[in-house]
Design a protein around this nucleic acid. Structure first.
Lengths: 147, 147
DNA sequence: ATTTACTCTATTAGCTAGATAGGGTATATA
DNA sequence: TATATACCCTATCTAGCTAATAGAGTAAAT
């Protein structure tokens, strides 16, 4: 299950990418636009900033903007930042591997076998999708829908 | 994240499949063997029984056994039974679709686009893996490890 | 009759997600 | 330099859920 935090983060990043690289967007505006509780969004943007995904500008005319090219921001990083490892079980995680205390051998553990496949598939999708790619997909879809 | 319940359920089903189709296994034995809290396992097996995955026999010589062929029991069904829909967000679920109240259009929602792919990949794996297939994979792995 | 072992409902402790509150700090502009 | 703007940061709260336990009830075998 994707947490609200991760979901809001992705939505906010998409909106920021759409706003272009040089115009800071205020928390309040982003919150209204994306239907996110403002103070909650504040926490999320702060975290994204502290992780180097966003830059911020204080005071009048301030707000948030992407710190990197949308082509260099991957969904995998965002989801992990807020929800932890992608793997359904710790023993199937690549980035945060923890063995099961009870499991005598992962090679013959059915849960491990199946969940490793789920993790790999999920990682392939999320680590393979940048904000830029996502924007392109959205634009394609909107062309089709509009036509 | 896979819940302990779902994880225990899968482990228990694998163990039951390995015990063969005609010998009931007691909760207590299964619990000891698989390192699962007995009373917790009781709840899980009961649920599996009520969902038609297991049969039970009461009294002396009793216990649990598979109600169907291992080739007809799929991980997807087990995981959904205990953890709900596979999709990371309700709007990406096939079996329990719920639209987002705020989302004006799923076709142009980045979260939806990405999470639908994750759901589809997960479902393909879990709905495509039966207990019988899982057992074969385990046996293959154990041959390789042992050799 | 008695033992065995499943059946079912209730309860509980601990944790986390989601959200809110409010004072602090940096920046722009007049 | 005064002041408004808008991000920065820590603390707190509540509902709901997960994992686990307890215990009385019921069916079956011998």
């Amino acid at each position: 299950m994707l947490s609200r935090k991760a979901k809001y983060a992705i939505k906010a990043l998409i909106a920021l990418a759409e706003h272009g690289p040089e115009a800071p967007v205020r928390i309040a505006d982003l919150a209204r636009e994306q239907q996110i509780p403002p103070k909650f969004l504040e926490l999320i943007l702060l975290e994204l900033r502290n992780q180097g995904i966003l830059r911020s500008r204080k005071g009048k005319g301030g707000g948030y903007l992407l710190a990197r090219d949308p082509g260099a921001i991957y969904l995998g990083q965002i989801v992990r930042m807020f929800d932890g490892p992608l793997a359904p079980v710790p023993c199937a995680s690549q980035t945060a591997y923890v063995p099961c205390s009870d499991c005598p051998s992962e090679a013959v553990c059915g849960v491990h076998l199946a969940m490793k496949k789920v993790r790999d598939a999920t990682a392939k999708i999320l680590d393979g999708t940048s904000l830029a790619q996502l924007l392109r997909q959205i634009n394609n879809a909107s062309l089709i829908t509009t036509s």
